[in-house]
């Protein structure tokens, strides 16, 4: 159905998508996890209660979550150029993807850590654990299955966002679908990209589910 050149292009696009999603998801976790932790531990009656810090972070996360991705992508172009030296291309697309995903990850982390039994935190405090030890040894390990599922959802969202990144020359499967499938009337290419995207999302979901299950020691 496809000649080898087209196959190469599809594989290349898949690689670009994986690259964008993988790197931005990783970076979003690196920045989003601490923000999520701060959102939880500064809450009332938590280990480092601090209403001021909490409100500031709540506001920042809410603002970040409310900007539509397409607008964000364009709006932060100067910042993107500053970081990557260009505002076009796959690497440049990672910047808006990451920035869009950080507040999302922070909310996911917040929800996961809230589920941790306050009694367990109290027990750790009673043993003389410091706030840092409680975060590293109690909150995060106890929330691990839920955190893994949160990262899975984030990755899947990023697959969706990454197709929009095609608009700024980000490449990837979305870009391919638009340029070949839509603009050149190649329905078969369109269908192929959609099938690959479906499989990709399925794969991420199955993998995330399996990892979460492996980390789960509570009776389900």
């Amino acid at each position: 159905m496809f000649d080898s050149r087209l196959v190469q292009i599809i594989v290349g696009s898949l690689g670009e998508t994986l690259y964008m999603v993988g790197v931005s998801c990783g970076l979003a976790v690196v920045f989003g996890l601490p923000i999520g932790v701060i959102l939880v531990i500064t809450e009332k009656r938590h280990i480092l209660e601090n209403p001021c810090v909490n409100q500031v972070f709540q506001a920042v996360v809410n603002i970040g979550r409310s900007i539509p991705f397409v607008i964000l992508m364009v709006a932060i172009m100067p910042f993107t150029r500053l970081l990557t030296g260009t505002s076009i291309g796959t690497t440049a697309a990672i910047v808006p993807l990451t920035i869009a995903a950080i507040p999302f990850v922070a909310r996911m982390v917040e929800t996961s850590l809230r589920e941790v039994d306050p009694g367990v935190v109290e027990a750790a405090q009673a043993m003389g654990a410091s706030p840092w030890e409680i975060i590293i040894k109690v909150l995060i390990p106890e929330a691990k299955p839920s955190l893994i599922l949160g990262v899975t959802i984030t990755a899947i969202n990023l697959v969706g966002y990454s197709t929009m990144a095609g608009a700024i020359g980000g490449g990837g499967l979305g870009d391919l679908a638009v340029r070949y499938g839509y603009q050149r009337f190649r329905g078969d290419v369109m269908l192929a990209t959609v099938v690959i995207l479906v499989l990709l999302v399925q794969g991420v979901q199955v993998l995330g589910g399996a990892l979460a299950k492996k980390a789960e020691h509570r009776r389900s």
Partner: peptide, 8 residues
């Protein structure tokens, strides 16, 4: 409620 760590 014992408050054991379920992950350990």
């Amino acid at each position: 409620h014992f408050n054991l760590l379920s992950s350990r």
